[in-house]
């Protein structure tokens, strides 16, 4: 099976990666770039645990082929904090109790980040809608919604 050499930017850093044609962006992030913050929960675009930002918008990284990512710009959970300063979303997820087991958290953060990038003043409904594709089995969601509201307020 042939490998595809692709060049892309991940969390601001240029990466050159050789990937098989059947690999997803999720696999490439985790297994080639050791960015294991992005989680695999279903591999079928349903749970949202693998959500990253690709070219400015939230995507399920399990639904993108790695080979398609030539020239792409990707942000993962590892790229959210800047020089040790947490993103407001991270800070409020911690403070409001939006994190329990933590497995959905990276995907939630990136979905929420993409929301605030396109809509800095989302309503509660906007937030719930934007996060409807991020399954969480622990928290019951409302604390996550509160965290995003608080982050939007300081955004």
């Amino acid at each position: 099976m042939s490998l595809h050499r692709i060049t892309l930017k991940v969390n601001g850093s240029t990466e050159i990666v050789d990937v098989p044609g059947n690999w997803t962006l999720l696999q490439m992030l985790r297994e080639k770039l050791a960015l294991t913050g992005t989680k695999n929960g279903c591999a079928s675009g349903e749970c949202g645990a693998c959500t990253v930002i690709m070219n400015g918008d939230a995507v399920n990284s399990c639904m993108v082929l790695a080979a398609e990512c030539e020239g792409a710009e990707i942000i993962t959970v590892e790229g959210l904090s800047k020089e040790g300063q947490l993103d407001a979303l991270q800070k409020f997820m911690i403070e409001t109790g939006g994190i329990q087991c933590g497995f959905c958290t990276p995907g939630v953060l990136l979905s929420a980040k993409a929301l605030l990038m396109r809509n800095p003043n989302p309503s509660e409904y906007d937030i719930r809608e934007a996060l409807a594709g991020n399954l969480c089995r622990c928290t019951g969601y409302n604390r996550i919604i509160t965290a995003v509201q608080k982050a939007a307020a300081v955004h």
Binding site: G37, T38, V77, E78, Q90, I94, G102, F103
Partner: peptide, 21 residues
């Protein structure tokens, strides 16, 4: 008090079994 496990969970640093290289 704030949880002691959530900073690493919020930054993607928390290690789950599938994350070990």
């Amino acid at each position: 008090v704030l949880r002691n496990d959530v900073l690493e969970k919020a930054t993607g640093a928390a290690v789950y079994t599938d994350d070990i290289q």
